[in-house]
Design a protein around this nucleic acid. Structure first.
Lengths: 250, 250
DNA sequence: CGCTATTTTGAGATGGCTCAAGCTATGTGG
DNA sequence: CCACATAGCTTGAGCCATCTCAAAATAGCG
């Protein structure tokens, strides 16, 4: 999109790229120029689960789906990567294998670094390593939270959460609400929620009747986000929070 | 327990402590001596979910349960930490809050480092940072795999996997099989599997009748591990694996 | 303008949950 | 050393959220 300093497209945008936070301009430039520009059109993949991991990526433009395929052939959609996010490839450090597949959900542009390069950069720029550690810790905590949800909540609640997360990551304000600005089929939503497309369809229909959302094919408009929130937090009723004890310190 | 060079108890044991791999002896010693020795008896906690995170830990002796409590008061058991593992505390880097609680499942001994100290050590020893990155990436992939299981498998399969994992981490060979050497109630197993203690109890009874395991109160003896494996891999029948394409390289 | 992917809806089956009741080790205080 | 208290475990019965499978309606796309 930018015309000047194209090597930084997307990189300078606010909010994104926590991975480069607190790095001096020189360091940042060294890291960015060490990467290779990669493009994928909708449907192409960056890498596939099981393949030997070569690259670490940061998405500059577009959306990427990270999916995992079970031995029985079921698909699970683990994460929707948006511009600014890093993905797939800490695996590239050891000579490992990608644990997920990464498919472009729209036309995409990313930066890619080979395993050796990442290793070199991490050693040269401790702040970069620390940023990566924080990024991974966040991903881990996120997965833990979602594991907990999957283990304890019902489908309707989980679907509400999925939608809210999508609104947060890809939402675009329009007159009648917030539009989830990615093409996602009922099947995709099911794979993100741990349910079936039938159940998703039924729930969305119900929500539409209730006026909370408005859904066309592969497109969802959230008219009344607060409605989703109260579904996500479960109707069971307000339970108080707990105290916050502390028994460590060194 | 030890009288001399106590700062290294458990640290030198083979297998454990990937976190200190490839570090020169001096670096390792610097890191270890920067930590504080911490002890907890069975039932005490190292830290609690929601408290401000002060420390990063490595377990030297004992077992620690990492649990997460839902807003509705349901418990989820995320991980059983064994000697050599790091736990709870990358959160200590930012001024964050612990996302889980860590409770000693037996008498424990650990090393703890404050957030500032960790930051300093990571900057001084890039290899340490890289080890931590790999550790976190492994945890993340593990969580992703378990998320997938929870999303797609049935309770019996998941319970079989949980048991197999326990055998791998805490199993002790005895005459009649492998003993899972931790006190775990049906309730604990349910919290690890995402089900109820009733369902766990029923399934274990069935397995016992089938001669696969032998279970007393809070104790499980796996007589026929292979039986568990075939349950975990699902009876549905053998489905072929897939090819391993590759479409990236830079 | 027909073809195909997506979505909706119905009907029936069921895995696992809930709740209630009783059982059994374990260890504790008398 | 026994008897009771308690935490842990088992089992049954009924219910319900969600899955499965089938069929038809719809909407893009080429």
């Amino acid at each position: 999109m930018t015309s000047d300093g194209p090597a930084l497209t997307g990189i300078e945008r606010p909010g994104g790229l926590r991975l480069f936070r607190s790095l001096e301009r020189v360091a940042r430039e060294e890291i960015v120029t060490a990467g290779t520009r990669v493009r994928r059109v909708r449907g192409q993949s960056f890498f596939r689960q099981g393949a030997v991991a070569h690259n670490f990526h940061v998405l500059l433009e577009g959306r990427v789906k990270l999916t995992q395929l079970t031995p029985e052939g079921q698909m699970v959609l683990l994460r929707l990567v948006v511009a600014g996010d890093a993905f797939g490839g800490v695996a590239a450090l050891g000579n490992r294998t990608y644990p997920v597949s990464a498919v472009a959900a729209e036309n995409c542009e990313a930066l890619a670094w080979g395993g050796r390069t990442v290793d070199r950069l991490l050693r040269r720029h401790p702040q970069f390593a620390i940023n990566l550690i924080e990024f991974l810790a966040d991903r881990l905590h996120d997965m833990q939270a979602r594991y907990e949800e999957l283990a304890t909540e019902q489908v309707e609640q989980r679907l509400a959460r999925v939608l809210l997360r999508l609104v947060g990551r890809t939402g675009r304000r329009v007159e009648s609400g917030v539009l989830v600005d990615v093409r996602l089929s009922r099947q995709d939503l099911a794979e993100m929620t741990g349910t079936t497309l039938f159940t998703v369809s039924r729930i969305l229909s119900r929500w539409q009747d209730a006026g909370v959302i408005q859904s066309k094919r592969q497109r969802i408009l959230v008219c009344h986000p607060h409605g989703l929130v109260s579904i996500a937090e479960a109707l069971p009723g307000p339970n108080g929070g707990g105290a916050v004890p502390s028994d460590d310190r060194h």
